[in-house]
Each structure stands twice: as C-alpha cells, then as structure tokens.
Write a protein that binds this DNA or RNA. Structure first.
Lengths: 81, 81
DNA sequence: ATGCTATGTAGCATTAATGCAACATTTGCA
DNA sequence: TGCAAATGTTGCATTAATGCTACATAGCAT
C-alpha cells in the first residue's frame, strides 16, 4: 500500500523555466516565493523530473512574464529560442 | 484517516473546453479519445470540478486548435470570448 | 412509450505533484 | 583557504488528478 518511489513520471514536458528565471536574475527560492511553492519544486521542474499542474504553470508563466506556450512544450526547445 | 471526498480542489481554473468542443461538433467521448483520457474526465474539467495537469491541458489545446491561454485562465471568461 | 446517446454523479483505487526535512555538492567570493 | 549561498538528491507524507465501474437523468429520435 506504499512505496517511496515518486519522482519520475511518464510523459515528459519540456520547459525554459531556468532560462527565463536566470534572465530575470532570480534565484529558485525567489521564484518559489513568487509562485507560492517550495524551492525544491522549482528544481524538480527545471530538471524536468516532473511537470507542473496547470495552475502552477499559469502562475509561473505570470511570474516570469511569459506565455505558457513559450515556457512549456511537449517537444524539446531549440537552442536560444 | 480517510474520506471519500475527492473531486473539489482549492484553486479554481476556468476554461472554455465545452464551448470550443461543441463549436467543433465533438462529443465528450470523441474529445476524450483524441486526448487519451476518460470521457468523465472531460466532464469534470468542463464543470470545473478540478483543473487538468499541464500535459493534459497541452493535449486538449492541441486537439481543439487553441492556445492554452485561450482555453484556460485563472480569472473567469467574459461572455463570447 | 421505447430506446439510444450524451451527460451528470458517486465511489474507490492508483499515481503524479507537492510539502517538507535533512544532507551532499558546487560555486563564488572575501 | 574557508565560508556561505545556490543547487542537487533522497525519503516520506499528503492531496489532487485520473481511471474505471455503475447507475441516474435528460433529450431526441422512431
């Protein structure tokens, strides 16, 4: 009825969170504070260990002044946008 | 320690899935098949009983030929777009 | 009326997303 | 060098999202 094996979903979602975050000179902790999650959560997302809920994706997009479609994609991003 | 009370989250996300779906003349079952979920799941989303994962939101947007930001929002939609 | 199709609802099981704590590692800077 | 901040990683608990089954209801044909 239990197993300590979370972290590692099925369907990948690629993102540019780290790129957009560092562009704004923000630390993970600061971004986490802005969107109201733990700083580790930002880490998991940047490393693409799992994909966010839609609500979180919307909050992050707003915090980073980007469109959801500019930040997240089902297909890998090319270099330098 | 348990309660059969799922269905009913905290933070609402508004959407136009039903509007976009009927515009295309699709049934819930058909949309569900296109995005690979249960037809009830589409129902729960349209009634805004919970919000989708980002992956599902991306798939739905693609199936309905819309931008994620056109389909989902943290603030209610006005009438007729 | 009968029947069919689309939709609403309820339960319960499973899995992914997130919180949170603890500790390792890396990097920059005094 | 060493310290401190930022980040990586692990483990476990909790909750939301989804699957799935079953049944009720509503509308629209024939």
């Amino acid at each position: 009825m239990l197993l300590g094996m979370s972290r590692n979903p099925e369907e990948p979602v690629y993102n540019r969170i780290e790129e957009a975050r560092t562009t704004l000179g923000l630390t993970r902790q600061e971004l986490a504070d802005k969107v109201g999650v733990h700083y580790q959560t930002i880490g998991y997302l940047e490393r693409e260990e799992y994909s966010p809920s839609l609500v979180l994706a919307l909050r992050i997009a707003k915090a980073l002044n980007q469109e959801v479609s500019e930040l997240f994609s089902q297909t890998p991003f090319k270099k330098g946008k």
